[in-house]
């Protein structure tokens, strides 16, 4: 949408709300994408760090 007139935010960004609560669930330890997730989690890496390796 078009930016309304007079809209302002710090560095053009305005944080308004936050996520509603999330549900704790089990993910299935199967498949290449899970293994990548497990690797990230165990080494405490973020996506971009993982991409670089």
């Amino acid at each position: 949408p078009v930016l309304p007139q007079g809209w302002a935010g710090e560095k053009d960004f305005k944080s308004i709300g936050q996520l509603s609560s999330a549900t704790q669930r089990n993910i299935e330890p199967v498949g290449p994408h899970f293994l990548a997730h497990a690797r990230r989690k165990r080494h405490q890496r973020t996506f971009s760090e993982d991409d670089r390796i």
Binding site: S20, A22, T23, Q24, R25, N26, I27, P29, R42
Partner: peptide, 11 residues
Amino acid sequence: PMVTVTPHLRN
């Protein structure tokens, strides 16, 4: 479970 239990977005 430390690895497999994670939050899932509700919305």
